[in-house]
Amino acid sequence: MSAFMSLIARDLRLAWREGGAISTALGFYLVVVAILPLGLGPDLNLLARIAPGILWVALLLAALLSVDRIFHNDHEDGTLEIIALGPLPLELVAAAKATAHWISIGIPLTLAAPILALLLNLPAEAFWVLVLTMATGTPAISFLGALGAALTLGLGRGGLLLALLILPLYTPVLIFGVAAMNAVITGPSPFLSSYLILCAITLATVVLAPIAAAAALRLNLN
């Protein structure tokens, strides 16, 4: 357990001191959310109606942008092989690195979402759902992203390939995240059913994705 925690702490320290990844993801998120109204028109009623979708899709894209860094640097300088030789099983290594990604990217994006929601005229009663659903859904995004990053490790055009591999797998998270928000904004469907399914997806992903990611890592480390 201490190895697991220290790996998370190390990754967080690296992310904090490099700084680039967090601010790039946040900047990307802001730009995507800001550019969509330019294409859709400034009608605030329309924007309020589609705000949940815009915020979620932009969040997926912003997270996707940073996800291939999960293993990349450690693989490049050989740290990943040392970690793999260490006491921690690769499944937990993948889980630790995905958790660190969630804390360093997922949480900042979640916290930035309400500010961006102001730009889109999201109804006030939906703000807490926005934060709640995103806080629940982003772990699934990080863990699936870690799987994609492990599969495309060491490939030249990993970033684009990663989007093709992972975005279809993100659809359930997107659908239930937006459904839970729409349930609060427009009704009539109950909020809790969508939200609980979102929780189930996240929990299942957090358990299963590290296993697949570890299999992919083993493949790429040999």
Binding site: L147, L151, L165, P168, L169, T171, P172, I175, F176, A179, S194, I197, I201, L208, A209, A212, A215, A216, L219
Partner: peptide
């Protein structure tokens, strides 16, 4: 690995799209 992950995911995707 991806194909097996996909085959686990396909029923979930199908279900979520139905719901959506």
């Amino acid at each position: 690995i991806l194909a097996i992950v996909g085959s686990v995911n396909i029923p979930i995707i199908k279900f979520s799209v139905d719901w959506w």
